[in-house]
Amino acid sequence: MNTASAMLQPIQSDDIPLSERGPAPTRVVVAYGFWLFLLSDIIVFAALFAAYAVLVTRTVGGPSGSQLFNREHVFIETACLLASSFTCALSSLAIELHNKKYTYLFSALTFVLGIAFVALEFIEFTHMIVAGNGPTRSAFLSAFFALVGAHGIHVTLGLCWLVMMMAQVANFGFTARIARRLLCFSLFWHALDIVWIGVFTIVYLGAR
């Protein structure tokens, strides 16, 4: 805990239980609220996963997962996203140090890796749709495109957010408000990684 947020805390003694120490500092409140948002977002994915599990066998004469998915392609995709989470964490460290140069550098790397992920997914989708295996082909493919596509849209929105945040850093510097937003962004980015690990395991490795 840095000194700024420690100063916002009321005088604490150990005999006062945590729940009775009064309102939390803004940084905690914002991060907590964003965590709750992420949980709700993960429930959206849970519903999509459930739908996928129900519909995965409903290929209706169309191709199944194992006939469609190229594991090498998906492996590179996964590697990009996981690496982007690593660079995102490095940029969080740079933000903590208020180092603009490294913040830009690692955020740019995060952005490039994220774009690579989205591009690879786009290529995969296009190939499938051009071959007549789009979401309208079967209930299985509907569920596949909705689940993986929802994740892809999240990543795309995250990339837009990242660009905006870099503009804000350039504009405002590392003010408390910008720091809170950057914290929320990194939470978001890591949450997308967790969701992707579910997608990779259940959809791609679990394909039959």
């Binding site: 959206v44 519903a47 519909l55 409903r58 979401p135 309208t136 209930a139 299985f140 509907s142 495109f145």
Partner: peptide, 30 residues
């Protein structure tokens, strides 16, 4: 609970607007 509603109505919207087959009678919908 509300994210489930959002996801479910979203699936129905995909069915209605983009021809997905989550809940249709044909193409394996349920």
């Amino acid at each position: 609970a509300f994210p489930i509603l959002t996801a479910t109505l979203g699936m129905l919207l995909l069915d209605r607007y983009l021809g997905f087959h989550f809940f249709t009678n044909d193409f394996g919908g349920n």
